[in-house]
Structure formats: structure tokens, C-alpha cells
Design a protein around this nucleic acid. Structure first.
Length: 465
RNA sequence: GGUGCCAUAGCCAAGUGGUAAGGCAAAGGUCUGCAACACCUCCAUCCCCAGUUCAAAUCUGGGUGGCACCUCCA
């Protein structure tokens, strides 16, 4: 399998450090609010990557952190009149609610900054000993000029970065590119004891420290959004490689942005949507489908219309799944005929196409196309006379492929309110008497109650709007 | 100014040298009392110009247009 590696700027065959095992890290959310659709993309992308690696036989250790020590958290907790810890705990819970609805599995661990102060301080101490960090009045900065590889991920030279750097009002830094590793305590802020006095860590050091603790000095894959390339990931490299002298990550994977009207979604533009908001109008599986229908590195535009398209597309999966379940319930023969056996073997082609697409830098758009082709094949070949063996073969492959993408395609509800059941029965009676006016009226009434009626060759079926 | 990305049908989107996947929408058809579902059919020569090649959406050069990073942000 191949991945596009940001640091080499090309697709490379994936070779894990340890055969059969993958260690990956992805930057998680700063927990001060519900996360937005832009945050959701890397969560989904790297969840799919993790699932696919496991599907391919790797034993994956996947770490995604929670940033629970941060200016934004402190500020917001003041606004809400609670402690920063209370605020971050609250939004960690909310994160899991949305993540679950998006079909995002739990990482192997979700470490928190607040629980890794020892590791963070130890790493800063090493950097200081190596001459890569300096302490000014209790603020510790990374000395970028002393790390020759700085800029290797973002393809920027230190000189270029300096010329583009904003005039820095902070005269404590020796160079404008230097960044904070440890920030001196300010009144009213949470703090921890350290060799440099009371304070808290800078933003970048946490990922280096937690990655090292949970995954070791060199990891296989490091992921995140493209906007983390600089400075966050560049700084992580400086910290991790500067402190241990070994490569930090072998493969750097970065997902593209989500835009609104071709513009980046940002807090300052006020054009962002939280996942929680979207959940009011759409099942979040639609969001997952929408994002996976594009390649993870491409920028995607986001709009309600596009979500609606994805929703309709996803309905094809649901319809196929329910149809197979229906056919299996009503199947009368067990064993596949010879012709069916031939057909069952032919299904392998879809799996092969799916794997080929996923192997090529996680091309989920192409992989989904192969599932649509499978669905068409299933819809045209499975009939009320199909054997259970054939239907089960179809179900198995469909479930396997959608499962790798984390598309749950939830089981159909079986419980129908008795009131609805009565209406359906009345409508059937009216149809039997060819009283179509009445039957259509009942159908409209059911629709108003959120039930769509379909008269199929196999009988009446219903589904929720 | 430095760095990187993108431009494929009405909409979305794969495809990185061999003659344009898939989804949504629209149209025609089969099925159906009708509708819906499903299935069948139909729908593009790939921003422009030049070049390399037997062969280019795919490579090279030059344009044009758009986006992003260099500042907290996935």
C-alpha cells in the first residue's frame, strides 16, 4: 500500500518499522467547544486509515490526543464560570458523542496534556541540555536556529520563514521563529511546577511528548490537517528529533480542508458548522459518506446541497442492505445453484477493485465507486428465488467493504407504531378494492408522519423519511 | 515576497502515458393502479496555447483562473 508522504512529496510504499505493526499518531481536538466539520475530516480520514490498516492485517496502535491545556480553554472557562478542567472534561464527553455518531472508533488511547506534565517537562529539559532551548524569566523557547533541519516538512528555509514572519512584539525571543515550550504562569491560570518555575506547556510540545510516551521515539505515521504542517508539525519534528536524534515519523499524511463557498472555514469568518449543528438535519453517517466520496487530500466544498446528494447516494446502500435482509428472510432454498456459485466467485472483482483503490493512498472515492458497482450487481442478481447462500455471500462482502470505510449502514428498524401499522393495513385494504383515491390519501398521511410507502413486487415496504 | 495545492459533464468526483470510474440531477424505457425502489438506456475528449510521444486529461514550457500555508485554526 502507498501513501503520499508530505515530507518527501511523493507516494511511497508503506513499510512499517516493525513488521505487521503500525504506530500512528494524529493530532486531536482542543476541547473547548463542539468540534466542527473541518475538525471532523481528519478524525474520519485517520479512522478509515486505521480501519484499513487493521483490515490489511496490521496490528495498529493509534494515538489521538486531547489538548486540554490551552488559552482558548482558559478563556472560555472564564466566560462560562467553570474551571478549565471542568470545561475540557465536558467537551471531551461531547467529542465522543459526535465521534460515535460519525462512526469514528476510539483510538488505542486518547492521552491528555494535563496528564503528561512529567513527560513534557522531561523533554524540555533535554532540549535545554542540548542547547536547543533557552529560559528567559521562566519562559522557555525553542532555539530554531540551532536545529538545521527546521523547515524540512513545510519546505521552507529558515531564512524564508524569517522574511515572511510577522514582526514579533515578543522581545524575549532570540529569533522571531522561536516558539514557546513552557509559558510562565499568569494570574488566574492553571499552572504546574517545573524547573523554570510555575507555568504551563506551549502548544507544540505536547504532541512530541505524548507521541514518545505512547508510541516511542520513531513512529510510522503521523497525521493531521494540512494547516498543521506549519508550524505545529514542523515544531514537533524540531522537538522530537532535536531531543532524541532519531527520525520522528516516517510517513506524514495530511488531509485537505473543508471550504464553504470555496473559502476556508474559519472562526474569524464565522462560516463554520459544528458537527452538532449538522446532526440536527442529517444523520451523521451522511457526513462520513460525503467526506469519503472525495479523496482525503483534496479540498472539498461543504454545503447542504452536497450533503443532500451524499444522503441520496447513501440511501442506495441502505436500500440494498434492506433488500438483502428481506430476501434472506423469505428465501426458500439454502444452497447456491451452480450458476449462483459462479456469480458468487465473480464478486471478488469488487473486493479486488476496492483494495486496489484503498492501497493507492487511501482512495476512498474510488473504493466507494466499487461498492456502488457491487450494489448494482447485488440489486440485479438477487431475487426472491435466490438461495440463502447467495444472499449471504452478497451481504458478507457488502458488510465487509462498507465496514472498512466505517459506514455502519444501520440495521432497519423493525418496530412500527401500531397506529402506523393500522394505516398501512387500511391502505392495503383500499388498494385491494381499487379505491386508489383513498389509498393515496393514506399514503400522504403516512408521509406526513415520516413514513415512505413502497409497493414492491414482494409486498408493501416502508421506510422512514 | 517565499512555499505548496488545484482546474474533468448541470452539480459532486475518481482517473498521472494507451484512448474518460462512480454518485446526485435531468431524459427515455421496463416494472407499478399511480408513485417510490430497482433495473436498462442516454449524458464530457478533460481551463487556454505550444511542445515531447506511435499514443496525453495524464509529461514539459508558457498563460489564465482559484485556494492554502508563512499568524491561533483540522
Amino acid at each position: 500500500m502507498k501513501f503520499y508522504n508530505t515530507i518527501t512529496q511523493q507516494k511511497e510504499t508503506f513499510i512499517p518499522i516493525e513488521s505487521g505493526k503500525v504506530r500512528m499518531y494524529s493530532c486531536g481536538p482542543t476541547v473547548y467547544n463542539y468540534f466542527h466539520i473541518g475538525n471532523a475530516r481528519p478524525f474520519i480520514v485517520f479512522d478509515v486509515l486505521r480501519r484499513y490498516l487493521e483490515y490489511s492485517g496490521y496490528q495498529v496502535t493509534f494515538i489521538q490526543n486531547f489538548t486540554d491545556v490551552d488559552d482558548k480553554i482558559i478563556n472560555r472557562s472564564r466566560d462560562e464560570g467553570i474551571t478549565p478542567q471542568e470545561l475540557s472534561e465536558k467537551y471531551i464527553k461531547e467529542y465522543f458523542i459526535d465521534a460515535d455518531a460519525l462512526g469514528i472508533e476510539r483510538a488505542s488511547a486518547h492521552p491528555k496534556v494535563s496528564e503528561h506534565m512529567t513527560e513534557i517537562i522531561d523533554m524540555i529539559k533535554i532540549l535545554e541540555e542540548k542547547g536547543l532551548a533557552y529560559n528567559v524569566n521562566g519562559n522557555v523557547y525553542y532555539h530554531v536556529d540551532n536545529f538545521p533541519d527546521y523547515g524540512k516538512l513545510s519546505k521552507q528555509s529558515i531564512e524564508d520563514l524569517k522574511s515572511g514572519a510577522r514582526v514579533d512584539v515578543n522581545d524575549e525571543k532570540q529569533s522571531p521563529l522561536d516558539f514557546a515550550l513552557w509559558k510562565k504562569k499568569k494570574a488566574g491560570e492553571p499552572f504546574w511546577e517545573s524547573p523554570w518555575g510555575q507555568g504551563r506547556p506551549g502548544w507544540h510540545i505536547e504532541c512530541s511528548a505524548m507521541s514518545k510516551k505512547h508510541l516511542g521515539e520513531t513512529i510510522d505515521i503521523h497525521g493531521g490537517g494540512q494547516d498543521l504542517i506549519f508550524p505545529h508539525h514542523e515544531n514537533e519534528i524540531a522537538q522530537s528529533e532535536g531531543s532524541c536524534g532519531k527520525p520522528f515519523a516516517n510517513y506524514w499524511l495530511h488531509n485537505g480542508y473543508i471550504n464553504i463557498n470555496n473559502e476556508k472555514m474559519s472562526k474569524s469568518k464565522g462560516n463554520f458548522f459544528t458537527v452538532r449543528d449538522i446532526a440536527k438535519s442529517f444523520d451523521l453517517e451522511v457526513v462520513r459518506m460525503f467526506l469519503l466520496m472525495a479523496h482525503y487530500r483534496s479540498p472539498v466544498n461543504f454545503s447542504e446541497e452536497l450533503l443532500q446528494q451524499a444522503s441520496t447516494a447513501l440511501d442506495r446502500f441502505y436500500t440494498a442492505k434492506y433488500q438483502m435482509a428481506f430476501l434472506l428472510d423469505n428465501a426458500t432454498t439454502d444452497a447456491a445453484t451452480k450458476a449462483e456459485q459462479t456469480w458468487i466467485s465473480s464478486l471478488d472483482a469488487y473486493k479486488t477493485a476496492f483494495i486496489k483503490a484503498m492501497d493507492d493512498d487511501i482512495n476512498t472515492a474510488d473504493a466507494i465507486a466499487s461498492i456502488f458497482e457491487l450494489v448494482r450487481d447485488l440489486n440485479s442478481h438477487l431475487t426472491p428465488t435466490s438461495s440463502k447462500e447467495a444472499i449471504i455471500a452478497g451481504q458478507k462482502l457488502f458488510g465487509e467493504l462498507t465496514g472498512v470505510l466505517g459506514l455502519a449502514v444501520k440495521e432497519k428498524e423493525t418496530n412500527l407504531e401500531s397506529e402506523i401499522e393500522d394505516l398501512i393495513a387500511k391502505r392495503q385494504a383500499a388498494r385491494k378494492e381499487k379505491d386508489f383515491k383513498k389509498s393515496d390519501e393514506i399514503r400522504d398521511e403516512l408521509l406526513a408522519k415520516g413514513i415512505i410507502i413502497e409497493d414492491t413486487r414482494e409486498g408493501v415496504k416502508w421506510k422512514r423519511v
